[in-house]
Design a protein around this nucleic acid. Structure first.
Lengths: 211, 211
DNA sequence: GCTAGAATGGACAGTCCGTCTCGTCTAGTA
DNA sequence: TACTAGACGAGACGGACTGTCCATTCTAGC
């Protein structure tokens, strides 16, 4: 009946938080988010279970359920914390340069990074669950959409693009083919491809330079 | 111990197939595929389980496992049989007309049809499972890609498009934004949007009309 | 000390998975 | 008419995970 503290998980028993009356344990929270992230990368989506998360984090299952409803909620939190801010379009003062840099950055994020793997898992879950889809939209996609618009808006202010350009459609035409290859066809998303997307986009848009 | 045949499922006990030594039951196969399809539309992906499929089809669970490995295998088979052929680009002899009709057809398929719901579920599963992704690619996506190329190839033969046009990239630029809205942003995919995609594409491509 | 709140450890019913055994039915063969 | 191989039906089974429940233990403020 004795509660031995050793062998319960990777967390250091000495530094373990045992609860107090003033709010949740930040240690436990961090351990859970990290555990979910690592499990997804190492064992795939099927390997991410509430039990595995708790075990890996060295935390009681009940503690996970206390703060998150489902494993996708944990993954969403982990995703938001870890790496959502990495995806900000750079500002070089030139539309073509900005777009080439940004699409390359986006391609590497989606295909190569751990955060990209989590993103793909969340998009997949959104297909199966409308409630989660709405939360994902509110917590991340809306913000990301605003960031996607930045290079085009800056170009508008510089006079490189017409002021009445439809930002929503223009953005979709730029990044849509990239997401399509990553999520559906599994085609290559190298700089050759992303640069071509930018070139095509620039050819499409009414040029303001000489006018 | 008596094996009562009534109340076991929607299948008519009188017409039930009880197996023979010369191949599988086509009745059971059809019942399973229909059951999986209906379950997905009615109860969502979580409602599709091997047990539910068997029960709904009025078939023993073992019979499902005999012919399919997982529930996504069943869904893939159902998808291939039911509606993959519906998505063939029409041929009006004119590129602009063909593309507008095809993108509209594709948008309705992805957003509104039951088969589109199955397709989204399969794409989601492909994010989680690389082995299934490869099978999905081989069984459907490759064929669909060939169909996607048809309107552009016909236009090339007619001389409406340059012969050296990169079909892969061109196709992705056409349909990518559409898939992106359906799978990720949940944005509108009305004719207003799809027509604009076509217009942009035609503006991008080197015109061959005047020589 | 006493107490509230957070965390632990473990038990629990429920569901689904995937496998297994058994009996039943059918069609071809002797 | 038996006999037999193969497909099917019914259902039991162990295992994994879910989501909930409880008793207990630790911590900080009163």
């Amino acid at each position: 009946m004795e509660h031995t503290r050793a062998d319960t998980g990777p967390a250091d028993p000495a530094r373990r938080h045992h609860g107090n009356r003033h709010g949740r344990s930040e240690l436990a929270r961090q351990a859970v988010l990290e555990a979910a992230d690592n499990l997804l990368v190492e064992r795939g989506f099927a390997g991410v279970t509430m039990e595995a998360i708790a075990a890996r984090a060295g935390v009681a299952k009940q503690t996970v359920y206390r703060w998150w409803q489902t494993k996708t909620d944990v993954l969403l939190d982990a995703f938001l914390q870890d790496s959502a801010e990495d995806l900000v379009p750079p500002d070089h003062g030139d539309l073509a340069t900005d777009l080439r840099a940004y699409l390359g950055q986006l391609a590497r994020f989606l295909r190569e990074s751990d955060a990209g793997a989590v993103f793909r898992a969340l998009v997949a879950q959104a297909q199966h669950d409308a409630v989660f889809a709405a939360r994902f939209q509110a917590c991340y996609l809306d913000d990301q959409r605003r960031r996607d618009h930045l290079p085009l808006q800056r170009a508008q202010r510089r006079g490189e693009l017409p002021a009445d350009l439809d930002l929503a459609t223009a953005t979709d035409q730029l990044v849509g083919p990239l997401y399509y290859r990553v999520l559906v066809t599994n085609g290559p998303v190298d700089p050759d491809f992303t640069d071509r997307l930018v070139d095509t986009f620039l050819r499409t848009v009414p040029r303001q330079d000489g006018g």
